[in-house]
């Protein structure tokens, strides 16, 4: 593959890396596994990149490849040795917004999201990324109605986890 293509890909990935980090955060619970999944998503993105036509946004295209890798393609490699689990607080609330109760609530919410299954996490991820139901249904390969129904069920499930 030519250098120009490689360069443009690396630049785009560096710019949008937050998406990949977020996927990794949802699907792994320690630093080694996070890095390992990040690596695998990068490889999959790079392999698919020559076919990326630019008719969709790079970020939208990344959601699909990232989630597909996390849900379907990724196999824990030997590199990912289990080390200390993440601190459950994933969000550094900005100083001016800081609210102790809110931080506590977020912590519990994040723990609850981690208890969901792979598909439910994918739906939550796309919802958090502010994707509409059409995009969610296209990414997952289900109908829009089913995406809505499932999302409501996930919300109920989260509520049950939070208030048993």
């Amino acid at each position: 593959m030519n250098k120009e293509l490689e360069h443009s890909f690396v630049e785009l990935l560096e710019k949008h890396q937050n998406i990949v980090h977020k996927v990794c955060r949802l699907y792994t619970n320690n630093y080694d596994a996070h890095n390992d999944l990040f690596q695998e998503i990068t490889i999959q993105l790079w392999r698919a990149y020559p076919k990326f036509r630019g008719d969709s946004k790079f970020s939208t295209w990344m959601y699909r490849v990232g989630l597909n890798t996390a849900i379907t393609l990724y196999r824990k490699s030997k590199r990912s040795i289990k080390t200390t689990e993440f601190d459950t607080v994933q969000f550094k609330i900005k100083a001016e917004d800081y609210d102790d109760t809110e931080e506590q609530q977020l912590k519990l919410l994040y723990q609850a999201v981690h208890q969901l299954n792979d598909i439910e996490k994918a739906l939550v991820f796309l919802y958090l990324e502010d994707k509409n139901y059409k995009e969610i249904s296209e990414t997952m390969g289900i109908t829009e109605v089913n995406a809505r129904v499932k999302m409501n069920r996930v919300k109920t499930k989260l509520r049950t986890i939070l208030n048993p």
Binding site: V10, H21, V124
Partner: peptide
């Protein structure tokens, strides 16, 4: 509940290790 998470999810830089080119 999810909207609270969404509020922070959007604004927060989750990455703590920025990966360079």
């Amino acid at each position: 509940e999810l909207d609270l998470l969404k509020k922070h999810w959007q604004s927060d830089g989750v990455e703590d290790k920025h990966i360079t080119t």
